[in-house]
Design a protein around this nucleic acid. Structure first.
Length: 763
DNA sequence: GATTAGGCTTCG
């Protein structure tokens, strides 16, 4: 059969190529050579529509590329097919197919000069005894729930998370991409390539990717994708109805109808199963203390110091807050001076740090960027009375922090360009007039910020939760009175400590009244590592009140991990209701378990029982919160006591109850701050000791909850706006008590705030 | 030819 469609089965042709035929390279296809028993193999990179010659003969032209010689300047050749063979071929041949052609006639190509292909073309027809074997690359795609360790697969996925390519500490760029598919399984892929272009061009969550030849490995008990030698990717916009245009650096890729259908299906699935990312922020919509992604154009850049670099960008909208300008040497600033001047009220300075510096330096002026996870921060410079909004791209790549360059073809860029052009047309005149009113302080367009500031200057930013009938006492009077007493007062918060709010969270033991720092993750990790040295004692596994499972890690350490699932009524409960005890786990594994299970108690085994770890480690993890016990006041009791809670009708696994049965005196998270209050008659330092009531933020949650951290920072900015003159500070209504502290040599009066809370509408 | 990183915000 002159035209034959071959299948590849297990890496070989299903029907073998006739054995007398031998492969010939493109460069050996020359006039004067004998090609009788030779074949040429290439991939279809172009296939023209079937036409008829003047004499009525069918004619088909296809272009084959030599896959073995992609580096040569000339690596493709025209194939001209005549008669019935042309007709047959047109039916089966597709872009991306591999074709084997034999029995051809070689002739000078009249178009070589224009099309830059081989000087000769190949003429083929049935009459001449030609043969074409066509191999459609049949890619098999594995769904994410069917991945096996050690395999190389092709797959599709919807991007659930990604880090735009960044410079790794090794030799390559790195991009981390987490995919999901309709099997609802996630796969995090770590992709490396020395060439930035070879990594997938993902611009937003929801984009769809097709990966070819990705290697699957097991890492930390989960499947992981990593780049293999032949890795290739296509990326598509994930929006339902958007044009299906693959983004790829590869000049050659197969893409056919099946693939189109796959993209459409995934788009529809994603639309109903993937949480939609938040609306894209514009500079006009930014708030202090936010992390956001910005699509913008680069108009200036400058080196600042070794670890930071400045990008001046704009998106055509005006930030409602006064913005921070990073001081740089005039000669260090790259960019068109006139443009920078014209846009000076619309550009913002973004300071990028550490690992982002190298990429930032390489950015081209005028290019369109998406900067991921910019942090806004309100701060005031030295001697300034207004606070300014700072934009930081901190070091590291957490949460996908990074910089991506968007091509001009990107729909968001097209929209932005149109918008920027319209801003430009409105004229710099507008900008000029705007800046002049800004300068003489008659800016009539009162922003939300200013309204907000006006409001907080009139009403107190804190209110009393009790004692409203009492009259205010001046600070001078309080300072001159003996302790202990209680007062209502009205004052301004001149300053507070610690300024770094994460330093204000401590652990408090209500029994011995001691305070201690919250241990950090490293301390915990260290204790876990120490306890993992001893293998779980299997004699303690699966008792009347818990079921145990154990496995050994695949890595070199061969670590043993045991999980003991506490039963209720002799049955296992739903994961979200389950308390489990874990032995030998790492910080990360334990953290993962807390995501799925209600409570996690890290334990180790002794000869005859399970026991809690050192009390420097949390005795319990629930959700995001680590619960610690007081070392002085706790007398740990047998783990078996937990079975009494498990036997309750509906075990609630309350941390206090767990602590009690385990003999643990729980430490409570508390905010400790020192407020310097002033009222014109005097100044006093009052301590704030607050579990939750004052800020209406649980101290236990703030260290792991970014939203709450932002809320806290905004609250403090409202109570004590940075850079403001004393007159412009808001009033606080507080209730304080004075108390005596005496030791052998000294007597002092201290003050503590209580029964006071931040006003509801402050944040 | 291995390495890079292996998601879960900095602390400037």
């Amino acid at each position: 059969m002159p035209v034959q469609l071959l299948k590849i089965v297990k890496g070989k042709f299903e029907t073998p190529i006739p054995s007398h035929l031998q492969n010939e390279d493109l460069k050996h296809l020359q006039e004067g050579f004998d090609h009788t028993n030779k074949y040429f193999q290439g991939m279809v990179i172009l296939s023209y529509p079937l036409t008829k010659l003047e004499d009525g003969t069918d004619f088909l032209k296809v272009v084959l590329q030599d896959l073995n010689d992609l580096c040569s300047r000339i690596n493709s050749i025209n194939i001209l097919i005549y008669g019935k063979m042309a007709e047959d071929c047109a039916k089966v041949i597709r872009h991306g197919d591999t074709c084997i052609v034999a029995g051809f006639k070689l002739a000078k190509s009249p178009t070589a000069r224009e099309d830059g292909r081989h000087d000769c073309h190949l003429e083929m027809s049935e009459e001449a005894g030609s043969a074409i074997y066509c191999v459609a690359p049949k890619y098999v795609y594995t769904s994410l729930n069917n991945l096996k360790d050690g395999t190389i697969v092709n797959l599709y996925g919807v991007v659930k998370f990604f880090k735009p390519p960044y410079v790794s500490k090794g030799t390559d760029y790195c991009s981390v991409v987490t995919l999901v598919d309709p099997s609802n399984v996630k796969l995090t892929c770590t992709l490396f390539n020395g060439n930035l272009d070879a990594l997938p061009k993902i611009y937003k969550v929801g984009d769809i990717v097709r990966f070819h030849r990705i290697k699957i490995r097991e890492y930390n008990g989960q499947m992981q994708g990593v780049t293999s030698g032949g890795f290739a990717s296509l990326t598509f916009d994930g929006t339902v109805g958007a044009p299906i245009v693959p983004r790829t650096s590869s000049k050659m890729y197969s893409f056919m109808n099946d693939e189109q259908k796959m993209i459409e299906e995934l788009r529809i699935w994603a639309a109903s199963h993937l949480s939609v990312s938040e609306p894209v922020a514009k500079l006009s919509g930014v708030q202090p203390m936010l992390f956001f992604d910005l699509t913008c154009q680069l108009v200036g850049k400058a080196k600042v110091d070794g670890s930071s670099f400045l990008l001046k960008v704009w998106d055509g909208t005006k930030c409602p807050y006064p913005t921070w300008k990073v001081p740089v040497e005039e000669r260090d600033l790259e960019g068109e001076k006139l443009l920078l001047h014209q846009l000076r009220h619309l550009t913002v300075d973004i300071l990028v740090y550490d690992n982002h510096v190298q990429l930032a330096k390489s950015l081209k002026l005028g290019s369109f960027l998406r900067i991921y996870s910019i942090h806004t921060k309100q701060a005031s410079g030295d001697g300034e009375d207004v606070s300014r909004l700072e934009f930081h791209l901190h070091g590291g790549t957490c949460y996908g922090r990074g910089i991506g360059v968007l091509p001009e073809s990107n729909p968001d860029v097209k929209e932005l360009k149109t918008f920027l052009e319209s801003v430009d047309l409105a004229g710099s005149q507008n900008m000029e007039s705007m800046s002049s009113v800004e300068f003489d302080g008659t800016f009539s367009n009162v922003t939300d910020l200013e309204l907000h500031l006006q409001r907080i200057q009139q009403l107190p930013v804190t209110v009393l939760t009790d004692h409203q009938d009492l009259n205010n006492t001046e600070l001078k009077t309080i300072l001159n009175s003996p302790a202990p007493q209680q007062y209502r007062l009205r004052a301004k918060l001149r300053t507070y400590k610690p300024q770094k709010l994460y330093q204000s969270v401590k652990l408090h033991c209500s029994k011995c009244n001691s305070l201690q720092e919250v241990p950090d993750g490293e301390d915990f990790d260290f204790i876990l590592q120490g306890s993992a040295v001893t293998a779980p004692n299997t004699e303690l596994h699966s008792t009347s009140w818990y079921d145990s499972v154990m496995w050994t890690t695949q890595d070199q350490k061969q670590r043993k991990i045991a999980i003991h699932f506490v039963k209720h009524d002799e049955m296992l409960q739903q994961p979200e209701d389950t308390l489990l005890m874990v032995e030998g786990g790492t910080l990360k594994e334990i953290w993962k378990l807390t995501k799925r299970f209600k409570c996690v108690i890290p334990v180790r085994s002794t000869e005859d029982d399970l026991e809690l770890l050192d009390l420097s480690a949390p005795f319990l993890l629930q959700g995001n919160i680590k619960y610690y016990g007081c070392k002085q006041c706790s007398t740990p009791k047998p783990i078996k006591n937990l079975s009494s809670i498990a036997a309750e009708q509906q075990p609630s696994w309350e941390p206090t109850e767990i602590a009690q049965v385990l003999g643990i005196e729980p430490l409570q998270y508390v905010f400790i701050m020192k407020f310097t209050l002033v009222d014109g008659t005097g100044a006093l330092n009052a301590y704030l000791f607050d579990y939750e009531k004052f800020f209406q933020i649980p101290a236990s949650e703030i260290l792991t909850n970014n939203f709450l951290q932002q809320k806290m920072e905004m609250t403090m900015n409202a109570l004590c706006p940075p850079g403001r003159k004393l007159d412009d500070l808001p009033w606080l209504e507080c209730f304080i008590k004075s108390y005596n502290v005496r030791d052998a040599t000294k007597h002092q009066v201290y003050y503590q705030i209580f029964d006071t809370t931040v006003a509801e509408d402050v944040v």
